[in-house]
Simulated scan of single mutants.
Amino acid sequence: MTKRLFIFGLGYSGLEIAKLAAARGWSVSGTVTGADKAQRLAAEGIEAHLFDGTAPLAARVLEAASHVLCTIAPGTAGDPALRTSAAQLRDMRWLGYLSTTGVYGDHDGGWVDETTPPRPDQSRSIERLAAERAWQAIGATIFRLPGIYGPGRSAVDRVRAGTAQRIDKPGQVFSRVHVEDIAAAVLAAMTHPASGAIYNVVDDLPASNSEVIAYACELLGLPVPPTIPWDEVAPTMSAMARSFYAENRRVRNDRLKRELGVTLRYPTYREGLRAIAAHSSSRA
């Protein structure tokens, strides 16, 4: 089988997926928005094409692909990949789309799974749900992601930078996933194609902001900062930051494990943060 993966959006998650696919023998290419990044990726063996969603890629670019994944967030005009390339995408052997667990909306800390009817409240999640349904309609596998962390984007990094805050909003928890587990889940789905399937790609332990920051401090041997009451910190936060605290849910990942046979490398934030702290310390 020809294994040629094209990724719309070689960002934080997209690039991790690209690197894992390349390591497993796939030919990988994708899109970026800047020429400098395209040149850097070319030096790493990843062919990158400039794409801003306003014009389609050259036909030959997608003609070479067997599998296509989209990681780009939609906007009010819809999904840019579908808007510019829908006709070509329908002929692919496999399609995938990275969505968000935000489509479930607020559940007051209750558990949700893939059978839970979506009820997004926020505009960006409403746009995501519309985009994932459009992708699903042409056979794409949907991956619903929570808060993504990994090297360079974690509580360990924020504590080291002195920007971490322990925010106390009683009962508030977040689901998370390490970027390496996203990549592993996508590669597993590519080898177990199921048209239109939906998978929650999350870890096993939803947790509060304050306990995650406290654990990062413990790993680094630094003092744990006091918690800040939500009512006190909320007025100082951006509208986007406040919006994450407007919803509260726990997300199940049973289908991911059962149908794709995925074993999470980082089943909770503890394993993930330990690995990040150990790796960054070894490079110091």
Rank of each mutant, 00 (worst) to 15 (best):
P229G: 11
N200Q: 15
I198T: 14
N200E: 12
V251Q: 02
W230H: 13
R270V: 12
R252E: 09
E247N: 06
R249E: 04
N253V: 00
R255Q: 02
A241C: 02
S238N: 06
R255G: 00
E232V: 15
Y269R: 04
N209G: 00
F244M: 11
R250D: 08
S210T: 10
A241F: 02
M237A: 03
S238G: 11
V212K: 02
S243V: 03
D203F: 12
D204N: 15
L222K: 15
A234D: 03
L260F: 05
E259T: 09
D204A: 15
T268M: 00
L220D: 05
P226F: 11
L264D: 02
P267Y: 02
S238I: 08
P267T: 06
F244S: 01
V224H: 00
P206A: 14
R270G: 00
C217D: 03
L219D: 06
N248S: 14
V202N: 02
R265H: 15
R250I: 10
F244K: 04
R255T: 04
E247F: 02
E218P: 00
G261S: 12
G196C: 10
K257V: 11
I228L: 11
D254Y: 03
P206C: 09
T268Y: 02
V224D: 09
L264I: 08
V262H: 01
L205N: 07
Y266T: 08
S243C: 00
R265S: 13
A214T: 03
D204T: 10
D203V: 12
N253Q: 04
V202E: 07
E259P: 07
P206E: 13
S238M: 07
P223W: 11
S243Y: 04
M240A: 13
P267Q: 04
V212G: 00
A197G: 09
L222Y: 06
D254E: 13
V201K: 03
I228S: 04
L256A: 10
L220T: 04
A234R: 13
P223L: 13
